[in-house]
Amino acid sequence: MTIASLKDVEVEYGKRGRAVGPFSLSLEAGEIVALVGPSGCGKSTALRLLAGLEGPTRGTVTRAAGRGETSLVFQAPTLAPWLSATDNVALPLELAGMASKEARDQARAALGRVGLAGAEAARPAQLSGGMAMRVSLARALVTSPRLLLLDEPFAALDEITRRTLADDVLALWQETRPTILFVTHNVEEAVYMAQRVVAMTPGPGVLAGERVVTGPLPRPHGFRTTEGFRATAEQVSDLLATGRAAA
């Protein structure tokens, strides 16, 4: 079943001209797709189209996952500094009309799932970058979304935190199997995280090609050193390089 799709979408920003398209992408239920490409190729725009936050200039966007069933995580944790971790996570539930006490109970449970039990009362300023990102992840998961859109969520983190979080996201995915679109400019990260890697090239953002990643999810230890991983990463890099040469 298709959860969300873009069909021949084009996005134009006034005088700046066409930013994206024509571009098509289809997300099936329960799959993890990585959208990889250089900065400014329109990855984030494609993500915002799928979230329904923007409309395309041309083409069609279909979304089986409704508003309350779609979650979004940005590159920055994007937390409200005046709210505690619990209140930040409870926010989407409260905005949807849930009673505060119940929302906070669920928020605390979600924080526990991302490994932040004990940090419930902390404010964002008191958390490390990795912990703040976990709060952001908990906020995205608390609504049990069918579609989880991740916009370069680890880009601002150090390598060790980034790897730990990547494994944690995959473990969380296994629990409820939401559809995940993982946007990144890092080819290795894309191949590690996804079952399918879609490569995008800029000027305007179009499809450069896609590769299926074989191997179990969550990834076993040492997956990055396997022949399959290396070969796929190489192929995706080639796709991006050819795309750029053509553009």
Binding site: R48, A51, L53, G68, T70, F74, T78, A80, L91, L95
Partner: peptide, 29 residues
Amino acid sequence: ADPDLERLFRLYGASRWQTLTRLRIPSSI
């Protein structure tokens, strides 16, 4: 207010009143 937080409020279907009282006013402090 953080534009990404504004996007999240839209994604969560927040009303104008909710966006004002729970995002704009606290952000302005």
